[in-house]
Computed example of a mutant assay.
Amino acid sequence: MKVDESYVRSLSAQIERELHLLHIVESGWTIAYEWTETHAYIRLESKLTDEEVSAVQGQMRPNLAGVLADHIIADKESSILRNLLIKEFKYEAKEDLEAIEGYCKPAVYADTGMEDSPVLTNSFGIQRRRQVLVDQLMLALEETSRLSLDGFLHFRLQDYTDELREIAEYAIDEYMMDRQYQEFISLLQYFVYIQEAKIPIVHLIHKGGHEFVILNDRMELIDANEFDASFKMEMLEKDINFEDMIVSTLITVSPANIYIHTRDADMTIIKTIRQIFEDRTTVCSYCRTCDIYLGEAKKQDQLSP
Rank of each mutant, 00 (worst) to 15 (best):
Y259T: 04
M245N: 14
I258G: 06
K271H: 10
S248A: 12
K232T: 03
F242W: 15
I258M: 05
A265Y: 03
R263I: 05
I269R: 04
I269M: 11
V253N: 08
F212H: 04
Y259M: 09
M235A: 13
D217V: 02
S230R: 09
N225E: 05
I270M: 00
F242A: 04
E243P: 02
D266R: 00
L250N: 06
K238E: 07
D239P: 00
D228M: 02
L250S: 11
F242V: 06
I260A: 10
V213G: 07
V213T: 13
E226G: 10
E237N: 14
F212Q: 06
N216D: 15
I260T: 05
E237F: 14
F231W: 13
K238W: 00
I270Y: 03
I258P: 06
I222N: 01
A229W: 05
H210T: 08
E237G: 07
V247F: 02
F242D: 02
A229V: 01
K232Y: 13
I260D: 07
T262E: 09
L215Y: 03
M267L: 14
F242S: 02
E243F: 06
M235Y: 12
A265K: 07
E243G: 14
A256F: 00
D217K: 12
K232E: 09
H210Y: 10
E220M: 11
G208M: 03
G209V: 10
I222K: 01
N257R: 14
I214H: 03
E220P: 04
L236T: 13
D223S: 10
M233F: 12
L250R: 09
D223M: 01
A256N: 02
I214N: 10
A256L: 01
M245C: 09
E234R: 13
F242I: 03
F242Q: 06
A229T: 00
M235D: 03
I246K: 08
D217G: 07
I240M: 05
M267Q: 14
D228T: 01
I260P: 05
R263Y: 02
A265V: 01
L215F: 05
E226Y: 08
R263Q: 00
T268W: 07
V253R: 08
N241V: 10
E243H: 13
H210L: 06
P255L: 09
E226S: 08
I269F: 06
N225I: 02
E226Q: 14
Y259H: 12
H261K: 04
K238Y: 02
F212T: 05
L215G: 04
I214A: 08
I269S: 07
I214K: 12
M235P: 03
R218N: 12
K232H: 10
N257L: 09
A265I: 00
A224H: 07
D228Y: 09
I246R: 05
M245L: 14
E237P: 02
I270H: 01
N225S: 14
F212A: 12
E211H: 15
F231S: 11
A265S: 12
L250A: 11
I214L: 15
M219P: 00
E237V: 12
M233D: 15
T249K: 15
K238N: 01
H210N: 15
E226D: 08
R263S: 05
V247S: 05
L221A: 11
S248N: 11
I222M: 01
V213Q: 15
V253T: 03
I246F: 06
E226M: 11
I269P: 07
T252G: 09
D228C: 06
M235E: 10
